Amino acid sequence: KKKIKIYIENENGEKKTIEIEVEGDIDEIAKELAKKYNVKIVKIEP
């Protein structure tokens, strides 16, 4: 498992940072999160 930080922006332009532990393809997981929460991924840090 890797701990990563995902910087997101919602439709109101509010920026947030999510810190999660992931296993597998980080890009795939980030895309799923973006779709699920309707946010834009700004940056992903390993």
Rank of each mutant, 00 (worst) to 15 (best):
K35I: 08
T17R: 03
I20S: 01
K3F: 12
T17G: 03
N10V: 07
G24Y: 03
K1W: 07
K16G: 15
Y37I: 14
I41R: 00
L33T: 01
K2S: 09
E9F: 03
G13N: 03
K1A: 10
G24V: 02
T17M: 12
I20V: 11
P46W: 15
Y7N: 02
Y7C: 07
K15A: 13
E19Q: 06
E23P: 02
V22Q: 05
G24A: 04
D25S: 09
N38T: 03
E23Q: 09
I6L: 09
A34Q: 06
K2D: 05
V22L: 08
I26C: 05
N12P: 01
E23I: 13
K35H: 05
I29H: 04
V22H: 07
K15S: 14
V39M: 08
I29Q: 04
K2C: 11
I44R: 01
Y37T: 14
T17S: 07
E32L: 10
E9T: 04
I4R: 02
E23M: 12
E45R: 03
I18L: 13
K1E: 03
I44V: 08
E32I: 12
V42L: 12
E32D: 08
A34L: 06
N10L: 15
I44F: 06
D25M: 04
E28N: 05
K1P: 10
E28I: 08
D25P: 07
Y7E: 07
K31A: 11
E28M: 09
Y7S: 06
E14K: 08
K31N: 11
E32R: 13
L33E: 00
V42T: 06
P46R: 10
N12K: 13
P46K: 08
I41V: 06
T17E: 07
I4N: 01
G24E: 02
N38H: 12
K40W: 02
I4W: 15
K3A: 09
K5G: 01
L33G: 00
V42C: 10
E21P: 02
E32H: 09
N38F: 05
Y7F: 09
E45W: 10
V22M: 11
V42R: 02
K2E: 06
K16R: 14
K36Q: 07
V39Q: 04
K3Q: 08
Y37N: 14
K40V: 14
V39S: 13
I18C: 11
A30P: 00
V42M: 03
I26K: 01
P46I: 15
E19F: 09
K16Y: 15
G13Y: 04
K2A: 11
I44Q: 01
K15W: 08
E21D: 09
E14H: 10
I6K: 00
K40M: 11
N12H: 13
I8F: 15
K1M: 12
N12A: 12
I18N: 00
K3L: 11
E19S: 07
G24W: 03
E23R: 08
E21F: 13
L33Y: 14
E32M: 09
I6R: 00
Y7P: 00
K36R: 12
I8W: 14
V42H: 03
E23W: 14
E11G: 09
E28R: 10
I29G: 01
G24C: 06
E45S: 06
E21V: 07
I6H: 00
N12L: 13
E9R: 04
E11A: 13
K3G: 06
K16N: 12
K31G: 06
I20M: 14
I41S: 02
N38S: 05
K15T: 14
E32A: 13
A34H: 05
Y7K: 03
K1G: 08
E19C: 12
E45P: 02
V42G: 01
N38C: 13
V22G: 07
K31V: 08
I6D: 00
D27T: 09
E23H: 10
E28D: 09
I29C: 11
K40E: 08
T17V: 14
I20C: 12
E23D: 12
E28T: 11
G24Q: 02
K36S: 04
I6T: 00
E23T: 12
K36F: 07
I8V: 12
E45D: 04
K31S: 13
I8A: 05
T17H: 08
K43S: 09
A34R: 06
I44S: 02
Y37A: 15
I4G: 02
I26D: 03
N12G: 07
D25Y: 04
K43A: 11
I20G: 01
E45I: 10
E28F: 07
V22R: 04
I26Q: 03
I29L: 11
I29A: 11
V39W: 15
I8S: 01
E23L: 09
V39A: 15
E9S: 04
K5L: 13
N10G: 08
G13C: 05
E45L: 08
K5Y: 07
A34D: 03
K16S: 15
E21N: 06
V39I: 10
V39P: 06
A34S: 10
I29Y: 14
I29W: 12
